[in-house]
């Protein structure tokens, strides 16, 4: 079973490596789970009895709560309008995904299929915009979005900001992918009198599904995890997104790590499922774009 029939090389060393790495990977996540299910609020630090035995040490490093309790989850969901915040997050993240992917698709298609002056510069501009550190961006963004555009305290404002921040990566991804799609199909369609728009929607997009899925995932996560802009732009509690709600538990003088961990898990679950659902695209979408020919 663990032996590859064809080559005769044993698989078990590979499994050892994989299991090792998997443990390394999930260990911190198990701590998050432990804290969430412990019912306590402290960031678990393992302390030891006097003259610790090896077993004691082992217990101290095992991420397993001493008692299981759902109280953290219950408190998170009931003490504040967390469900409402999750809903806001869903709306904002989906809106960002739709808008971001749409804008990125059209731009990337143009960069890939048309030849026009400013093409290289434009593409470069998209990449370059990723390089300016965002430490001083908050106030200019606030001025533009809230003072000039009047989109304070609205989900639309957040969607626009998140979508634009996710565009550069998406454009690069999609352009690479579009480049690999042979042009024969479009030419044939053009001969039959189809418009460029039609070609784009009915031929290119379906073919680029994996890359679109990946950019959608990225846009979604950009919006899903962002906290500081959401907290700054929203002036009503019922308009907060889930990450904003999460940050109530930490920061300032007292930290409620139990709530925070439980909230983090609630917030992560949709993303993890999205990852699982999009897995098959993830692998091909991220790379096929750059593997030319």
């Amino acid at each position: 079973m663990l032996r590859s029939r064809r080559e005769g090389m044993p698989h078990w060393p590979l499994h050892v490596v994989l299991v090792g790495f998997t443990l390394f990977t999930i260990y911190p996540i198990l701590w998050v789970l432990t804290i969430a299910f412990s019912g306590n609020q402290s960031l678990a630090i393992a302390t030891l009895p006097e003259a610790p035995t090896v077993m004691d040490r082992l217990r101290a490093i095992t991420p397993w709560p001493e008692t299981w309790s759902f109280s953290n989850f219950v408190s998170v969901m009931t003490d504040q309008p967390f469900a409402k915040w999750m809903f806001n997050s869903v709306v904002v993240a989906l809106g960002t995904t739709v808008l971001g992917v749409f804008l990125a698709c059209t731009a990337a298609y143009a960069f890939s299929r048309f030849k026009f002056p400013g093409q290289r510069t434009g593409l470069m501009a998209f990449l370059v915009s990723q390089m300016f550190p965002g430490t001083l961006m908050l106030i200019p963004l606030y001025i533009i979005l809230v003072q000039w555009l009047g989109l304070g305290s609205s989900r639309l404002g957040l969607i626009i900001v998140y979508a634009t921040t996710s565009i550069p990566f998406s454009v690069w991804m999609l352009k690479g992918y579009f480049d690999t799609i042979p042009k024969d199909l479009e030419e044939a369609a053009l001969m039959e009198g189809a418009s460029v728009g039609r070609i784009f929607w009915t031929i290119i997009l379906p073919l680029a599904k994996p890359a679109v899925a990946v950019t959608a995932l990225f846009s979604f996560m950009t919006a899903w995890n962002e906290f500081i802009l959401a907290a700054t732009f929203m002036d009503q509690e019922e308009m907060y997104t889930a990450p904003v709600g999460l940050r109530f538990f930490v920061g300032g003088f007292s930290q409620q790590w139990g709530y925070f961990a439980a909230g983090s898990i609630i917030v992560s679950v949709p993303v993890v499922f999205l990852f699982l659902y999009l897995q098959k695209y993830l692998v091909s979408g991220l790379t096929a774009g750059s593997v030319k020919g």
Binding site: I139, I228, A231, G245, F248
Partner: peptide, 21 residues
């Protein structure tokens, strides 16, 4: 009243109050 998470609170005040919002 409006509760703001502590981590974002100071920035939020600095961004909004001087602009009258």
């Amino acid at each position: 009243t409006l509760a703001v998470p502590y981590d974002a609170y100071a920035d939020k005040i600095s961004a909004t109050v001087p602009r009258g919002k």
